[in-house]
Simulated scan of single mutants.
Amino acid sequence: MRQIVLDTETTGLSWEKGNRIVEVGCIELVERRPTGRQFQRYFNPGREMEPGAQEVTGLTLDFLQDKPRFETVLDELLEFIAGAELIIHNASFDVGFLNYELSLAGPQYGRLEQHASVLDTLAMARERFPGQRNSLDALCKRLGVDNAHRKLHGALLDAELLAEVYLGLTAGQGDLGLAPAGDARAAVATVALEAPVPGVRRVLRASEAEQAAHEARLAKIAGKAGKRLWPAAEPAA
């Protein structure tokens, strides 16, 4: 199964007010393990950053001025996520912004859900930890994910942290480790080599000492009445 852990940074909290995406970060997982493939781009939003967004991301319009516009990289992004399951924390936020950007780029792009399915880890966390804080930072602390280096919000950094959080939330479905996908294939190959050969049955027979211990145990269970639920064992051939 191919999954893409995705995060965005924006000029503000509401696309309805004309805010735009300034960064996209993606991490590819195959069979729950990172492949090493990533997608990360900064974008020139063509408008100022809102003070709150600039504070949490550290991004400024001066830094973004020479970056490409979103629509010029859109085809590359859609090719990277095509057919995958997107893992997003608070998906309604990111999906809303991505659909807004797609609409600005042209009707031929449709909606994000036509290119990939979406899994919301915030909804997963609320189901598993009801009534608790389920921000990315709170989940990192609860699941033992080291986020000490997260001083500012960044799409690629947050996607990397979210990948570990997702694996922690779904640890019962497989290994938690972030080993490369090649290691997972090697593990499957090892298991296949150690599997029993079809059609060959290995029979283990009890030794004389084991049979004697078994008979003694049955006699003790039967007691003085001598009533047994199992017949005496036949001598080994």
Score class of each variant (00 low, 15 high):
61 L>T: 15
35 T>C: 12
112 L>T: 11
22 V>T: 13
130 P>T: 10
93 F>Y: 13
74 L>Y: 10
90 N>G: 12
204 L>W: 15
29 L>W: 14
209 A>Y: 09
191 V>I: 14
172 G>N: 05
123 A>H: 01
227 K>D: 12
172 G>W: 13
237 A>V: 12
104 L>F: 06
119 L>G: 04
106 G>F: 00
74 L>E: 11
37 R>A: 15
134 N>K: 13
104 L>A: 12
166 Y>R: 03
213 A>C: 08
215 E>C: 13
101 E>F: 15
3 Q>F: 09
201 R>F: 14
72 T>L: 08
133 R>V: 12
57 T>G: 03
54 Q>M: 07
72 T>F: 13
29 L>Y: 08
197 V>Y: 14
141 K>M: 02
217 R>Q: 12
100 Y>Q: 05
51 P>D: 14
114 Q>I: 02
203 V>Y: 11
122 L>H: 08
236 A>Q: 11
49 M>P: 13
3 Q>P: 11
71 E>Q: 01
25 G>N: 00
1 M>F: 10
158 D>A: 04
204 L>Q: 14
181 A>I: 05
82 A>P: 00
53 A>Q: 01
73 V>Q: 10
192 A>L: 03
228 R>C: 03
181 A>Y: 08
152 L>K: 08
154 G>F: 01
33 R>F: 10
92 S>M: 01
181 A>N: 04
236 A>G: 15
143 L>N: 06
6 L>W: 04
137 D>P: 01
97 F>Y: 09
177 G>E: 09
231 P>A: 09
112 L>I: 13
187 A>I: 01
129 F>H: 07
189 A>N: 03
61 L>F: 15
200 V>T: 14
155 A>Q: 04
136 L>W: 04
223 G>H: 00
34 P>M: 05
222 A>V: 12
202 R>G: 13
8 T>L: 12
116 A>L: 06
21 I>N: 08
23 E>I: 02
71 E>T: 07
61 L>W: 11
22 V>H: 06
62 D>Q: 09
94 D>M: 06
132 Q>T: 15
119 L>N: 09
151 K>A: 13
166 Y>A: 06
45 P>R: 00
138 A>W: 13
191 V>C: 10
203 V>N: 07
211 Q>P: 07
191 V>P: 00
235 P>Y: 05
74 L>K: 06
213 A>H: 05
184 A>K: 00
141 K>L: 04
86 L>M: 11
16 E>G: 13
43 F>R: 04
59 L>H: 08
